[in-house]
Design a protein around this nucleic acid. Sequence first.
DNA 1: ATTTTAATATGACATATGTCATACCTAATT
DNA 2: AATTAGGTATGACATATGTCATATTAAAAT
Lengths: 231, 231
Amino acid sequence: MIKINDKRRLEKYILNHRINEIFDNDIKCFMELFYFKRNEYICKEGEDVPYLFFFVEGKVKIYITMSNGKSLLICFYDDFRIIGDMEMMSVKPATNNVQAIQDTYCIGISMETARKYLLNDVKFLRFMCGSLGDKLDKCSNNCSINLLYPLENRLASYILATGQKLNCNGKSVIKINENLKEISELLGTSYRHLIRTFNILIEKGGIIKNNGGYEVADEEILKKLSADLYK
Amino acid sequence: MIKINDKRRLEKYILNHRINEIFDNDIKCFMELFYFKRNEYICKEGEDVPYLFFFVEGKVKIYITMSNGKSLLICFYDDFRIIGDMEMMSVKPATNNVQAIQDTYCIGISMETARKYLLNDVKFLRFMCGSLGDKLDKCSNNCSINLLYPLENRLASYILATGQKLNCNGKSVIKINENLKEISELLGTSYRHLIRTFNILIEKGGIIKNNGGYEVADEEILKKLSADLYK
DNA sequence: ATTTTAATATGACATATGTCATACCTAATT
DNA sequence: AATTAGGTATGACATATGTCATATTAAAAT
């Protein structure tokens, strides 16, 4: 996490996402811009979250770890969202992990400041209720999909959501650059079955193997297979 | 849904659940007490919710129906909770179904009144943020459990959560009185597999068949099998 | 009384997924 | 060079779950 001292850029994000409009009070002066490198954690389960964040650019994944050590993907954010909302209200440590899967920018307001000014800001509280409601709605929807669709569909969706676009000799290639064991845990399946399902996607022409890694071969095929999960 | 004109009872609920303490304004005068018979709907997907409800006694189940017609259990409420919170914020119709599975009492405030007074009530908005945060936390947790445990465990939990306690010749018996097809849908499984799993629970001594219906034979066995789901 | 319908139940088989043993490769360690 | 460890890959088999055909029973409709 690196603080970016770029007033212009901060202003740009505030304008683009109309962040000023969600507060009664002008608290622009308390806002700081932060950069998270790909793979870096924005918050970790069990740890205090030092800032209330407004996610403004990049992509993050949210996952939970269970008491038996297994972890499971909850969802992705790739559009404007609040991070740290639950922690702000409950003064409890985070219950989920939030990890950047692309270089990511967040606007942060320190938790003390946020609690001091925003817990009395009607406009913001309303916004937060709406935001939490949205999250809850998406969560219950994803939950259903997880239970009702086999891994093949969820994996296709996961690849499209997390695959890294790279330029490879002029061609744009989407690669799966993550540890396969971790992917299997996030998708709530076994390593064995994950590999099996990768092979099925290869058979169906959605992906290919290259240099010991997987790459997207046909985005359309994957799109058809992915049933709007993790949206 | 029947309006109960019993000031005393209403007062009792307000006191017990400290409902007055979650508002800055005294809005007791707008509160009405409602009774829902077992199996009755408190809200239905796609329909407007006419009241903001405070669930105070009984038990309800929340489930979602998917575009392909399948439905899936989200959770149960058997403790003080808000119903209609998301609808109040977003002025959208309900996205979930809420159905009483026991005789249930809710305190209701008409949506107009709620929007008029409560959208400016800081204390209430804070409470609502906390409440939505709790729901989100539980949802993501249940979601994980659903994916990580087989039906046997989920069914055991479901039976304990929804089984009806009846007095049968002096003995207390817990019966499963619901339509089995519906149960299978709520648990996100096939009818065939549900029956199979009932039979497994019979083999393990957790339940027995009686008069063509299933009954709990050994609560402890079921408790061990149910991994804290739907709590 | 007969027919129809809905709910319950089961066998047979197919598919989805988990577990375990093991093998291979590469990078790090000794 | 030999050893170790982590990540990747696969076969064999077991378990979990889905699909389909079909039987049975009880309640509802005619």
